[in-house]
């Protein structure tokens, strides 16, 4: 009897601690998003939660914010270019290293992954100096190149994971049935790893769209990007338009994510 109660206490306390901590984690994860959305609907001129009255006035104010819109346009443009380039480079890189166990391919793997771990700010600064010493003027192209370096590892990672799930017997049977390597790649490999590449591309897009450490050094007045512009608004005068812009970004993220889930099964690719 005493033994039984001890066990129950053990199980109960374990469940309580795990349950309480993970509930706290979920609240902490979700609450900020909800709070920003509600705050952005405020009718007053100051950031307050709960908002005093609901209105869309700050969203309407975004229509007149030309600089903000230009920054958003720049971000979108650079993100699309960087994503396309990262998707191609990342897929090639993953195909090159995934099925080899040689020392070289492991070294390449480490090289391709290192931008994820090294402080991106250091890389951004290094790229600025390299371009400047090489006499290359900053433009949207240099900015996109910087983004490709930090986005390619993301595509490599999801594509390598997809390749690891690919049954080599499929490739062998395709070859033994007389298919050329190119045909096998197009008709067998690519359809099977396509979702991995797509998931990586979605993540790369969001990473480029939100990149600050590299853009901080590689963008100038003409190529100002959205996250840096928002950062400046928040740091200088913290106006409610920042909340409205955040609201738009949250809805945008939600849409991209639902699309990614539909097309690539994003949440499954991430695990």
């Amino acid at each position: 009897m005493a033994e039984r109660r001890r066990l129950d206490l053990d199980a109960l306390s374990f469940r309580f601690v795990v349950g309480a901590l993970s509930a706290a984690a979920v609240v902490v994860l979700v609450a900020p998003t909800v709070i920003v959305l509600l705050t952005s609907l405020t009718a007053s001129a100051s950031l307050r939660f709960p908002p005093d009255g609901l209105s869309f006035r700050w969203y309407r104010a975004l229509a007149g914010a030309g600089q903000l819109q230009r920054a958003a346009g720049n971000s979108l443009y650079v993100a699309v270019v960087a994503t396309a380039a990262s998707a191609i480079l990342g897929t090639l890189g993953a195909l090159g290293i995934a099925r080899s166990r040689s020392r070289w391919s492991r070294a390449l793997d480490a090289l391709f992954m290192s931008p994820l771990v090294l402080p991106a700010l250091a890389f951004g600064f290094a790229a600025l100096m390299a371009f400047s010493l090489a006499g290359i003027r900053l433009s949207w192209l240099t900015l996109a190149v910087g983004h490709v370096v930090v986005c390619t590892p993301i595509v490599v990672r999801t594509t390598v994971a997809a390749l690891a799930q690919l049954d080599p017997a499929l490739l062998e049977s395709s070859a033994s049935l007389g298919a050329t390597r190119r045909y096998t790649f197009r008709r067998v490999t690519l359809p099977l790893i396509g979702r991995g590449i797509a998931a990586g591309a979605f993540l790369a897009f969001m990473a480029s769209f939100d990149n600050v450490p590299v853009s901080l050094f590689l963008s100038d007045a003409r190529t100002e990007v959205l996250p840096i512009h928002l950062w400046q608004i928040i740091e200088t005068n913290l106006d409610v338009r920042a909340a409205a812009a955040s609201g738009v970004l949250i809805v945008f993220t939600l849409l991209v994510m639902l699309l990614a889930e539909r097309l690539a099964g994003l949440s499954r690719q991430l695990r």
């Binding site: 994860l29 979700v30 900020p32 998003t33 709070i35 920003v36 705050t39 950031l47 939660f49 993540l203 969001m206 769209f209 939100d210 600050v212 996250p227 928002l230 950062w231 928040i234 913290l238 920042a242 909340a243 955040s246 970004l249 949250i250 993220t253 939600l254 991209v256 994510m257």
Partner: peptide, 16 residues
């Protein structure tokens, strides 16, 4: 969702 939401947006939420 928070992983994909802009870091600036998430940080801004915490100021509020």
């Amino acid at each position: 969702l928070p992983l994909l939401t802009s870091v600036v947006v998430r940080t801004f939420a915490w100021i509020v």
